[in-house]
């Protein structure tokens, strides 16, 4: 079931990405049209090389499409300069990476605070939000641990807290469970599902993991860079 009452946060129109256009062109994305509304819990699935990560990178403004447009909260991100794009990402998009990608020299608390610091938030506001987020992912007692002192599952939960710190429009998670065991995967999915349900946070995953697909409420399947199917559960 879609959240039709919610506003549209992402609209992609004819998004195409061609690698090596002048030598041996590889069409990673081929005219992807997609609309994602606020509060959706979407999995983008497909075989390896189908364009899942490329699509996520394009939506996240990490890579620019060769053709087509991507509109986020009314802004065509293709028109943004590099500096504006970084600022836009910081304020509107949360990222969760497969390899967690926390800053190794900062504690869990500092990792979550980091994006807010970049946003120029006041200390008191940062402190309370960091505490709230780490508690919501079940790591209220690990605030002062560095990434190396946390398990993979715990690190990924910190990454989720970090992704939410800037109060983004949506969170992009690229294979977030790929490096996690079953228990950690279930735990992480529970947390994200709860955040989605209770706080209406929009999550978009790229995944191979059936456990993630099973929990998703919308599954977009890509094959050869094209939307093969788009199903709401």
């Amino acid at each position: 079931m879609s959240n039709n009452n919610n506003k549209t946060v992402i609209t992609t129109k004819g998004v195409t990405k061609v690698y090596n256009p002048k030598t041996i062109p590889v069409h990673a994305l081929d005219g992807v049209d997609l609309e994602i509304k606020a509060g959706e819990f979407t999995a983008i699935v497909g075989p390896s090389g189908s364009g899942k990560t490329t699509l996520l990178n394009a939506i996240g403004g990490l890579d620019r499409p060769t053709e087509g447009s991507i509109e986020i909260a009314g802004v065509d991100i293709a028109t943004l300069s590099d500096g504006k794009m970084i600022e836009f990402r910081r304020n509107n998009i949360g990222f969760v990476f497969q390899a967690y990608n926390l800053i190794p020299v900062l504690t869990a608390k500092e990792n979550v605070e980091f994006v807010m610091l970049l946003q120029g938030k006041k200390k008191a506001a940062m402190d309370s939000r960091t505490k709230e987020l780490l508690e919501s992912v079940g790591l209220g007692d690990k605030m002062n641990n560095r990434p190396a002192q946390l398990s993979g599952g715990q690190q990924q939960r910190v990454a989720v807290a970090r992704a939410l710190a800037s109060k983004p429009q949506f969170v992009l998670a690229d294979e977030p469970t790929a490096n996690l065991d079953s228990k950690s995967t279930a735990n992480l999915l529970d947390i994200m599902a709860r955040l989605n349900k209770e706080e209406n946070i929009t999550f978009i995953f790229s995944t191979h993991d059936q456990r993630v697909i099973d929990r998703a409420r919308r599954v977009v399947t890509l094959v050869d860079g094209k939307v093969f199917s788009d199903e709401y559960k």
């Binding site: 590099d82 970084i86 990402r89 304020n91 994006v115 970049l118």
Partner: peptide, 15 residues
Amino acid sequence: YEFGVLLSIGMKRTQ
């Protein structure tokens, strides 16, 4: 790799 991550999460190139 780390620089890429930092830029992704919104750290300015100047920072």
